[in-house]
Design a protein around this nucleic acid. Sequence first.
DNA 1: CCTTAATTGAAAATGAATATCAATTTCTTT
DNA 2: AAAGAAATTGATATTCATTTTCAATTAAGG
Lengths: 147, 147
Amino acid sequence: MSNNADLENRMASLKAYMDANHLKSTAQRDTIAEIFFKSNTHINLEELLTKARKKTAKIGHATVYRTMKLLIESGLAVPRQFGDGQTRYENLPRDGHHDHIICIKCSKITEFRNDEIEALQLESAKKLGFKVINHKLELYGYCNSCG
Amino acid sequence: MSNNADLENRMASLKAYMDANHLKSTAQRDTIAEIFFKSNTHINLEELLTKARKKTAKIGHATVYRTMKLLIESGLAVPRQFGDGQTRYENLPRDGHHDHIICIKCSKITEFRNDEIEALQLESAKKLGFKVINHKLELYGYCNSCG
DNA sequence: CCTTAATTGAAAATGAATATCAATTTCTTT
DNA sequence: AAAGAAATTGATATTCATTTTCAATTAAGG
């Protein structure tokens, strides 16, 4: 699946969600969603707003917040807080879930994935009577540049 | 080790940290620290403030924030954000680290621990050139009452 | 004690996120 | 294509958690 097809898939998912909820498609929403879907990093409000304003005439920050809330509700974005006071939005990778390693010195965020850990999580939860829907795993430490 | 000895241990650790940094011991600090060390849950500012004011005449909210910052710096408290906009402070259990399972319906927080997961985390990080200092693992799902 | 430096509370300031509201835009129905 | 209903928008005001400021107070060492 090409990046482009992936983008179109996500835009279509969003459209479907909006249709199902009597929500209207607007230039602002499309711009913000597209910028978000194209982002790889954990984008924050300011970045979204700056990029969106380059494409579409006038966009207020409230609209960015509102659009991101919509993307979260529709399951296309995940809000994350890494401790610096601002929410960042994660674009779910099409190849599935990943976790994060954050350098406590330079703040670099690296993604990783370990299926064995995922399996053990499900097992642990099951023992406690929990049905897991989602999870967050963050390792904090020093990257090899800062270590 | 009794609960009381444990409390005294922590108070002593704090004292040692303060001495080493030319910080003064005050009634407010002692009160807040003690309340925090005695707490089992993930206590937030409001709870700390309410309890502290019952013990010590006047305590401003700024002082609670300042004291918790001190406890974090000294490694005796860990700040956590579960997504409801406010920081909660976790008292490190004397028997070591634990992780959390959060019910997305009733918000109940259950603690668990799995050493196998911890080991795999270290291994994953090592492969990426990271030295892990700390980590957060949160599983979100439905508890057996809500599931 | 007495001096110095740290600490405190009250109030003001900051900053992220949300709510308000009149004006605008989309979508459906003629 | 035009109109009407309903949703959306941007600017502004607001909320709420947290931080800063600063004059007055207090702790600790000499």
